[in-house]
Design a binder for these strands. Structure first.
Lengths: 114, 114
DNA sequence: TTCATACTTATCCATGCGGCTAACTATATG
DNA sequence: CATATAGTTAGCCGCATGGATAAGTATGAA
């Protein structure tokens, strides 16, 4: 498995959790310290930190510590990686009937168009 | 958690696996029976079927059985649901500096722009 | 009717994930 | 210095996930 695929694994896994998506949604509006991010959630801090780590490993967020406070910020690059994958699929889906074989198969097998 | 969020959970989880993404990528080009989908993978059939079930539960694919053969096909609706989420984030990210508070905070805290 | 094909169902197993508590470290603050 | 604050580290727990095998079902072919 190449790096692009591996990166999609961790990326989609990171996004497959409502808490983590909500954190992203908060951070796209601007950076915030861990404490502020954590307060809305009824969850122990170490549990919440695991989510932050997952997001950071996935490259969706970055963080830096100054004094006691770790400030997290959003990183837009990785979302683009994911969107690239969607674009690929959409392109393939759009070009389904580009060659005659597929068209014939489709006509033969009945209507599969939306 | 509302239905939109729950649906994003299962959707992203379904996409967080290379085998499942590859199956989607195959099916966007057109429908195929289970056997044909399974052959490229060094995996027992029941294991592979689990992946198909995950994709079907997530609404990414549909399947119908005729005789012995179950034919799977891609369903584009759910990918759009995911893309919608990305669009939301992109919009928020783009409007980060729409109000003065954020701009001031940003100038104060240093450069966080790309 | 016999045999092969294409799943399907049931069960098991190791690992990882998402949650917890408890205890620790390091930095402000009074 | 003493205490509160903000994370961090370590370890535990139950459940889900991704894999396996073995055996069963139903359909098509000979």
């Amino acid at each position: 498995m190449d790096k692009y695929e591996a990166s999609l694994d961790t990326l989609f896994h990171a996004l497959a959790d409502p808490t983590r998506r909500a954190v992203v949604q908060r951070l796209v509006k601007g950076p915030a310290p861990v404490k502020e991010l954590a307060t809305p959630y009824d969850m122990a801090l170490p549990s919440f930190m695991k989510h932050l780590n997952v997001l950071e490993q996935a490259g969706l967020i970055a963080s830096e510590k100054q004094g006691r406070v770790r400030t997290c910020s959003f990183n837009p690059d990785k979302l683009e990686t994911a969107e690239k994958w969607f674009d690929e699929q959409r392109a393939l889906w759009a070009s389904r009937f580009d060659n005659l074989d597929n068209l014939l198969t489709s006509l033969q097998g009945g209507n599969d168009e939306t």
